[in-house]
Design a protein around this nucleic acid. Sequence first.
DNA 1: AATTTATGTCAATAAAGCTGACATATCCTC
DNA 2: GAGGATATGTCAGCTTTATTGACATAAATT
Lengths: 163, 163
Amino acid sequence: MSRQTGPKAGKPEPLATPMEDTDIIDFEIIELFFFAYRDFVSDPDAILEKSGFGRAHHRVVHFVNRNPGMTVADLLDTLKITKQSLARVLKQLIDSGYIRQVAGPEDRRQRKLYPTKSGRELALALAEPQSRRIERAFEGASAEVREGVKAFLRGMRDRQRAE
Amino acid sequence: MSRQTGPKAGKPEPLATPMEDTDIIDFEIIELFFFAYRDFVSDPDAILEKSGFGRAHHRVVHFVNRNPGMTVADLLDTLKITKQSLARVLKQLIDSGYIRQVAGPEDRRQRKLYPTKSGRELALALAEPQSRRIERAFEGASAEVREGVKAFLRGMRDRQRAE
DNA sequence: AATTTATGTCAATAAAGCTGACATATCCTC
DNA sequence: GAGGATATGTCAGCTTTATTGACATAAATT
C-alpha cells in the first residue's frame, strides 16, 4: 500500500540546487522554530527521564497546576489527545502522588484535578530551566520586542477552534 | 462536605490555587510556545496524513531539500535520531520517488541525498501553510520586531552542541 | 424510567523512536 | 596487499505515546 505512493516509478532526476526562501516561503523561520522547540523541550525531558515520566506527564502536571480544579474533559480539550492516551499518564501521576482527583461539588460525575504539594514542586522544577532558557533568549531585547514575541506566538495559534 | 480524606491516611492535600508567574518563572511564554508549536505542526500533519507519511518524513524531506547532497550521517546529526529510526522513513521516501541516493563522487561509501522534482514539490507544499501561518502571526509587526523574533528563536537553541 | 453525560477501562493497533548485533563495500594506513 | 576504520544497510526486539472501538458505571437530566 505504501509502495507506489510516489508520482512515477523509474528514475526521476535528482535536484542539486538548495531550496531557498521565496516571496511566499520563509524557510528560515520554519527551521528556527523547529530547532527552538526541540531544545526547549529537551530540558524538562532530561528531568522527567529520572522519574520514568515523559512529555505527556509534563503537560498534564503543568496544566493542572495552572488551572487547579479543571476536569478530565477540560484537559482532553487543552491537550487535544484522546481519553485513553490521557488515562495512562494521569493514573501514573495520581498513583505517584503528584495529582489528586476530587469529585465535583455540583456535578459528582466530574473528577476535578488538583496538584499536591509535590505536584506543584515538580511543575516548578520543570518550568525553571525553560524559563531560564527564555530569559536567555530575550537577553538585550527591548520591551517592544518582548511584547512582539508574545504577540507572534499568540498569532501562531489556530484562530477558531471548535470548543 | 466530601473531602474524601477517608480510607488512606497520609494522602497529601490538594492545592486549589493556580500556579502563577513569579520573578523567575514565566508560565505565559511557556504556554504560548506550546500552543504555537502544536498548531504550527498541525498544518503539515494534515497534508502528510493523506500520503501515509508522518512528521519524521517531513523533517527528512525538508532538510534534504534545503541541503541537497547531504549524506545520511549529516541527516542523523541534524535530526538527532538513530540510524535505524532514519532508515525506515528514508527507505519509504526513496521508494516513493521523493528522494534519490547517489554514491559520493570522492567517497563512494557515502550516499548523498537529493530531492526529486516531486520531492521538491512536496517540501514546498508542506512549507506553504506554515509560511502563511508565520506571515499571519507577523501581521502588523515592525521590522524590528520581526528581527527580534528571529533573534529570540535563535537564542532558544542550545549553545554548545557536540557536532 | 429512559437517556445523556463524565469518566474509567479493556483490547488491539500504529508511528516513531530506541539498543545491540552484524553485514558489506569502500577507504586509508602500514 | 593485508588489516583496520568508516559509511551505510539491515535484522530482531523493545518502549513510549499516541490512536480507535467497545463497553461499564455512576450521576445528572428529561
